[in-house]
């Protein structure tokens, strides 16, 4: 490949980083989901067991972890939508880079709104 290569649709530059980000967030969400179904299954053990585990999700440190998880999901979801548009929309390949900036902008807006609500509940000291 020539040194002056400007990358392709999938490799190099923004395309490469968004691809790595999509892959990493996908795996993180999958691992969370395995644990999440196990912790939800405690409702079949006893209400006390479920409530005990849920109470560990309510401390401020975990709230930061939940925010990070939601950040991963929101990025994966919006970027996934971009990949779908690249594949199915006839001008998708032409605008894939602009759409990536759109993904990042939407991601920031969603996360600011989410964090304000979620962190003020979690740190609000009920």
């Amino acid at each position: 490949m020539s040194k002056a290569s400007s990358g392709t649709l999938y490799r190099g530059h923004e395309g490469m980083w968004s691809w790595v980000g999509h892959r990493v967030t996908g795996v993180v969400i999958f691992l969370f989901l395995l644990v999440h179904v196990l912790d939800t299954s405690l409702v079949r053990v006893s209400p006390g067991a479920y409530d005990a585990v849920m109470s560990t999700y309510k401390n401020p440190l975990m709230a930061l972890g939940e925010t990070a998880l939601v950040a991963a999901i929101v990025f994966h979801a919006f970027n996934g939508l971009r990949l779908i548009l690249v594949d199915f929309w006839k001008s998708g390949t032409k605008y894939h880079r602009q759409m990536l900036w759109g993904v990042l902008a939407l991601w920031v807006i969603t996360m600011v709104a989410f964090s304000i609500r979620h962190l003020s509940i979690a740190f609000g000291g009920h």
Binding site: T40, K58, A63, E66, A77, H118, I121, H126
Partner: peptide, 23 residues
Amino acid sequence: IFGHLFANLMLGEGITGINFGFV
């Protein structure tokens, strides 16, 4: 997933409202 997260974390008391009774 967005509906799930919105119902469980954004509405009502958010994360502090989740317990056996909530489920």
